[in-house]
């Protein structure tokens, strides 16, 4: 069996000004996880190599690192599965500051979890502690997936929106929020969804899908964010740019079967958002001059009536 090169990013704040890569060679034992390999390197080659770990059974969420650019839970990942051409690059998680080697600062991560008020707010008046509250299997299933989150911060690390805006609440906190918004026992659904619809909340996700892809559990943050948006749209929490955009989009499809790109920007920005609308002018002119603007006369699809009928059918439900 051949050796694999582990190219690991190092940084010791007591010594180094910048991060650098160090290569370790290791024969990957059969069935070894990435965490097993990191430990073998630490225990037999370089005791200073620093990373977090605890349960090694994919439930505590300590050992997330980036392998070949993507966040993985080291204890859940077979080392052989990430070795490409006998090499694997290991870096600390993204979107967070490095403390030492592969250990990152989780302070902001936890602050964002805290910001969504991650605790049940039941109807205190109806509360009696003498019996359990019932919850149907269907109600349970709505929150079951989000509740599998292990707070490993893999999704947070690889979130593209977070990379350009550190104020974004991010996938972990939003997935956690869904667990309360859709908990049949919580009475603050509307106030929660209102807060979550504010700037840096549910509408700041580009649904790129990285979070769900990197999630090692069933929590799949993007699906939870979509659920939150559904709650917002269906409970009338729509006085914000994101919901306006979604509403305008759906309205456009409903009226002509296909998207009218001329009306969407105006509707999303809000009809009275003068600075926002003005900001569209340069790009509008640029596109117009090249003939890249949408046709000024929007042609609806053929057989629009059948599509309208389907819309109506769902609205009746």
């Amino acid at each position: 069996m051949s050796e694999t090169t582990f190219k690991i990013q190092r940084f010791n704040p007591e010594k180094d000004k910048e991060t650098y890569f160090q290569e370790f060679k290791l024969e990957i034992p059969k069935g070894a996880t990435l965490l097993d390999c990191l430990n073998l390197i630490k225990w037999t080659q370089d005791g200073t190599l620093t990373f977090r770990m605890s349960c090694r059974s994919a439930i505590c969420g300590s050992c997330s690192v980036r392998a070949n650019g993507h966040a993985v839970l080291a204890c859940k990942t077979q080392a052989s599965s990430v070795a490409q051409n006998d090499q694997v690059t290991i870096k600390p998680l993204g979107n967070m500051e490095i403390i030492k080697d592969l250990a990152v600062d989780l302070t902001e991560f936890w602050k964002k979890v805290e910001a969504i008020k991650p605790w049940l707010m039941p109807d205190e008046k109806k509360e009696t502690q003498t019996t359990e509250r019932t919850q149907s299997v269907e109600e349970f299933l709505k929150i079951d997936k989000a509740s599998t989150c292990i707070m490993c911060s893999s999704c947070y690390s690889d979130c593209c929106s977070m990379a350009v805006d550190k104020s974004f609440l991010g996938p972990t906190a939003l997935a956690k929020a869904q667990r309360f918004v859709e908990d049949s026992r919580d009475k603050e659904t509307i106030s929660r969804i209102k807060e979550l619809s504010e700037d840096a909340g549910i509408w700041d996700c580009t649904h790129c899908g990285e979070c769900s892809q990197r999630c090692p559990t069933e929590a799949k943050p993007l699906d939870r964010i979509v659920s939150l948006r559904t709650v917002a749209l269906n409970s009338g929490v729509t006085n914000n740019y994101g919901a306006r955009h979604a509403k305008a989009f759906v309205k456009s499809i409903k009226s002509s079967g296909i998207l009218n790109e001329n009306t969407i920007p105006v509707a999303s920005m809000g009809f009275f958002n003068i600075p926002g609308l003005l900001s569209l002018i340069p790009v509008g002119i640029r596109m117009f001059l090249k003939g890249k603007n949408p046709p000024l006369i929007h042609h609806p699809m053929q057989e629009l009536d059948d599509v309208k009928r389907i819309f109506k059918k769902f609205e009746e439900k």
């Binding site: 759906v250 499809i253 998207l259 053929q302 389907i310």
Partner: peptide
């Protein structure tokens, strides 16, 4: 295909997942 609707672009599904699937199924 000229008699088909928008795919929903992941937006219709936010308002109503079944509606989005129905439009695509069509």
């Amino acid at each position: 295909l000229k008699n088909v609707s928008c795919c929903g672009a992941g937006v219709i599904t936010e308002e109503n997942p079944e509606l989005a699937d129905a439009l695509n199924a069509r």
